[in-house]
Design a protein around this nucleic acid. Structure first.
Lengths: 218, 218
DNA sequence: TAATAATTCAACCAAATGGTCAAGAAAAAT
DNA sequence: ATTTTTCTTGACCATTTGGTTGAATTATTA
């Protein structure tokens, strides 16, 4: 039955396609309006399908929201991989900061939804933070602590460093509007954004004493 | 008419007292639930007064919200004063960062409401950012640029530095719940918080080359 | 082709919510 | 003491919103 695979693939494709359509639309609305501010009608409008259709794929608003959150978490696991343990502190941190900055620019919506979640008390994300994020963080803390113990970098608190990187990089997504207004109501140009990236990397690397063997970007 | 002053004072006091009561309650709810998630009933419950009473002092939810925002802005003008131009870069930035960190710890609600505002596109705050915040920022940029030109600090982009400080310090307010969960579900202790403050100051000062003539905190 | 399963969608419903009102209680002014 | 003003509050209303239903349409299978 060589057709079987195709049939299944096609069957799944209508559902998958529509789920994706709805999730993308929902991401836009949740990011801009928050959980309560998001109505299924607005999502439907954004997705250009009738409202009842959304309920066909996602039985409740809560379920839709958790799928959006899950989506975001899946995506973020990628950027986390940029923080490996194969290179020098300076190389690893440069890569990680740049990756997080690029995510903030190319996909700010997820970051905003996440920020909203945390502000509201991590109601839907407590478990995820408690498990995945905490594990990830604890691992990186160990890595950074090893750098400190080896004398590769200054004796800084690893946790504070990570928070600093998260805060600074995600600021460019979460506070994009503020940055835009303060930039004369113009989105940061590619050049401005690259300047920001370079400066952040430079300041942090030097700040923790990790830039010794790297040329400072001019 | 020596009583006149008293009368007015007293007259004003009932209103002022209740407005304050309501604004404080509203701040709690707006911070935790966002604009749409806040209902006047919840605010009333928080303030322990009947709902209609709130409408007596604040005719609409929007008006109540803008008063809360105004309140926050007024308060923040204080911390801005910590960034003067009378001392060395290291002293000024240390003072400013510490002040912002302390605000994040003692009054996180305002920061969260502000973050929510920015995420949602600064709908109620565009003018304020465009005027007051922008002016303040442009002034500080000039100050920092002077430091750079004088060779007091490394040649960094002043704007990026300020954003870094804002992001990092406000992270402790906005992402308080995340930080708590990642700290084993315990709020940061005073000692942990002081460690964070010290580390942030140390990393930033060294990162911009301003710590030359300051002893590094141990 | 006939039957079955998956998908679309207008119309509907109950609960929640922003906001109103009018009547009574307290305070202030005369 | 009484009139006027300010303040309080339960009851009420229109709109919005999360969610349902059932019939029509399209796709899949036998």
């Amino acid at each position: 039955m060589p057709l079987n695979k195709n049939k299944i693939a096609h069957k799944a494709s209508i559902r998958k396609k529509n789920e994706r359509l709805i999730l993308n639309a929902a991401e836009v609305i949740f990011a801009a309006q928050g959980f309560k501010g998001t109505t299924i009608s607005k999502v439907a409008q954004q997705a250009k399908i009738p409202k009842a259709n959304i309920y066909y794929y996602f039985p409740t608003k809560d379920i839709l929201y958790s799928h959006v959150i899950e989506d975001i978490c899946d995506f973020w696991l990628q950027s986390d991989d940029f923080f490996d343990d194969l290179n020098s502190p300076a190389e690893i941190l440069t890569r990680y900061i740049n990756a997080k900055m690029d995510f903030s620019r190319s996909r700010p919506l997820g970051s905003r939804i996440w920020a909203n979640e945390m502000i509201r008390g991590a109601q839907y994300t407590k478990d995820y933070v408690n498990k995945n994020v905490k594990n990830w963080l604890d691992d990186r803390i160990k890595i950074i602590q090893r750098w400190v113990d080896n004398g590769d970098i200054d004796p800084i608190d690893p946790r504070t460093l990570i928070y600093m990187i998260w805060a600074t990089t995600q600021h460019y997504a979460d506070f994009g509007m503020q940055i835009k207004i303060l930039n004369g109501n113009k989105q940061l140009s590619d050049k401005q954004f690259e300047t920001a990236k370079k400066n952040i990397v430079t300041i942090i690397l030097k700040g923790i004493g990790a830039s010794n063997n790297l040329k400072i970007a001019s």
